[in-house]
Design a protein around this nucleic acid. Structure first.
Lengths: 335, 335
DNA sequence: CCAAGATGTGGGAGCGCTCCCAAGGACGGG
DNA sequence: CCCGTCCTTGGGAGCGCTCCCACATCTTGG
């Protein structure tokens, strides 16, 4: 079923049907009504390929998620991000093309994403410090948005959670509770979120005029096992509090502390980051920094569509606030 | 950059370039070489929309995941399934269009999926017993595959994990260990996997000539809280073992048992289903049934592409085996 | 009452590709 | 030596849509 046939059935021209379909105001009410009825009756849907070809707009957005990162789908960050992106696209009548970026197909994927004309714009969940896709997008002219800010490419538009602010608030909370030796288990330092959360930790110390002790900083990798190992390393320095850059690492840290015969939060207070569903049920329930992952997705879509429509307007850099969720592991209740 | 321009640059016709791009054998080696060089040099990628329009093949597969189900992205089933689908598509030079089916957009989405010509075929993760999309697909002629078998539509092709067999093996394992009152916490009975796992439980009992006691069956909802509640219900019937239809429910059950002062596995043995990453670290580590989620995804893609290429061949119904992973919670080590 | 603008409609061109048919050249068998 | 055949190449048509321009009709003001 195509435009021409709808036109014949409703006794108007192909052009008029097209106008009706696309909500062009230059159609009389009567004609619009007549055409709409036929469209409904035969359950007509315009051919997306033809539309894309003729108009240069496909009404499809690309979503690129790097698969290089190890423990990728273990935590629900990406699933929820995907959900946010997808929902926002649904609401705006867009579809989502999902590419999980695998290194072995990288070159082909980049070409495909950028030059095949499949999508009107791309959302890239940029985790790594230098990403060849981001590089290619910067050099090209396909509209794109990053989820997660990009440290080097100052040209790129992004939406990000306030990782620095969230980490700073978490650490400040520990310091206010009277903890003196606050350690941190960081994320990988080649990931932007990892670096930012460490920066927030350091900022909180600086705020109170404290020096950051390198011995109290251990690098993890956003996995449970990594948190466990990092905590074991830190044990020798006798911290009385730990800010873990992710909940899953906080859980690993708690396991290490327990094995060492230390109590949480009495001996060592813990704060995580992410607010996983399981963190509520942890023993003890985890104090953590919640980030608005779903809204990250919806906001990015909105910004990208805006960018597509008004390409020349000012840069889009949005930082969404995080929220400290106080439970038992930080020892607030001890006071 | 389009075909015509490549043709001019390499001194041949549009048709010949097209043939080179599409690996048509009817091109001399010399010509192919010459064209390929130009293609490489200018980094040409054919326009997907034009291709789709002209050839009727888009090289895009749709992946539909229902959002109706509540605790959807809490467990990594869907993320891993998506990964499998995406990887297989990458390997075959296909792209993935992801639709998270939200009820409020259902009608529009179904139309779009089926008639817009965006995709060559669809993969539907069919969880529910009756799904209007599956109905529509059955009536239409777009090639599709289900992940998860469909009980009523006998026409549909699917790939599924052996839920019945896995559950049966798990329960048989408990019975072999000498447990006499084996209860089960089921998934929602309007989900096919939920029903199948219960069927496996009952089959295991039947195998040993035992009657299934309705008092030992409690319906959960695949969430931790649901498992907890179901276990509390079961407590009165004094089971000495529980087969939970998902790990997350098993975790809830363990919490309920602990609160009731019962030991796992000494007093009550537990087996779960799914093999979540966290199940290894549970206290005690969870015995569980592992399903090949990733392979479910890749296998479905392979079957769908085969179906697209050979539409008239025999029905495709693939059931992938599960695997019992024995850890501590079933009490095997107690013997 | 007519020019000039607003309003609504129709048809041609063209988006970039694939598919089909035709044609040119090389080649070999009768 | 000619014709049929195979191999390779070129060009036309058309996929289903949008966009633009042209034209018909209707309004309105001087």
């Amino acid at each position: 079923m195509n435009l021409e046939q709808i036109a014949k059935l409703s006794g108007v021209s192909r052009s008029t049907v097209s106008r009706v379909i696309n909500n062009d105001p230059n159609v009389s009410v009567a004609t619009r009504e007549k055409v709409m009825q036929v469209v409904k009756r035969v359950n007509y849907t315009p051919n997306a390929a033809a539309r894309g070809l003729a108009a240069g707009r496909t009404h499809v957005l690309g979503l690129v998620i790097p698969m290089g990162v190890a423990a990728l789908f273990t935590d629900p960050y990406f699933p929820i991000l995907i959900q946010g992106v997808s929902s926002a696209c649904n609401a705006r009548e867009y579809s989502v093309m999902l590419w999980l970026a695998e290194p072995e197909y990288e070159r082909r994927q980049i070409r495909q994403i950028m030059y095949s004309g499949l999508v009107d714009g791309v959302i890239v969940s940029s985790m790594l410090m230098n990403d060849s896709l981001v590089q290619a997008l910067s050099d090209g002219d396909l509209p794109f948005m990053l989820v997660g800010r990009h440290p080097t490419d100052t040209h790129a538009n992004y939406v990000d959670a306030d990782n620095i602010g969230g980490a700073r608030e978490a650490v400040t909370h520990l310091l206010r509770l009277g903890r003196a030796r606050v350690a941190t288990i960081t994320g990988p330092q080649n990931m932007i979120a990892g670096a930012d959360r460490l920066a927030g930790y350091q900022a909180a110390l600086r705020d109170r005029g404290l020096l950051s002790d390198p011995g109290l900083i251990a690098e993890g990798d956003f996995t449970e096992a990594g948190g466990y190992r990092a905590m074991q390393q830190l044990l020798a320095r006798r911290p009385d509090a730990v800010f873990a850059a992710s909940d899953i690492m906080a859980l690993g840290a708690i396991r290490a502390l327990r094995e060492a015969g230390l109590r949480v939060p009495e001996d060592v207070a813990i704060v995580g980051f992410d607010d996983l569903p399981q963190s509520t049920r942890a023993e003890p329930p985890l104090t953590t920094v919640r980030q608005p992952t779903y809204r990250l997705g919806t906001t990015t879509v909105d910004s990208l569509l805006d960018l597509i429509e008004y390409p020349d307007s000012s840069p889009r850099r949005i930082v969404l606030p995080t929220e400290l969720v106080v439970r038992a592991s930080c020892g607030s209740a001890l006071k």
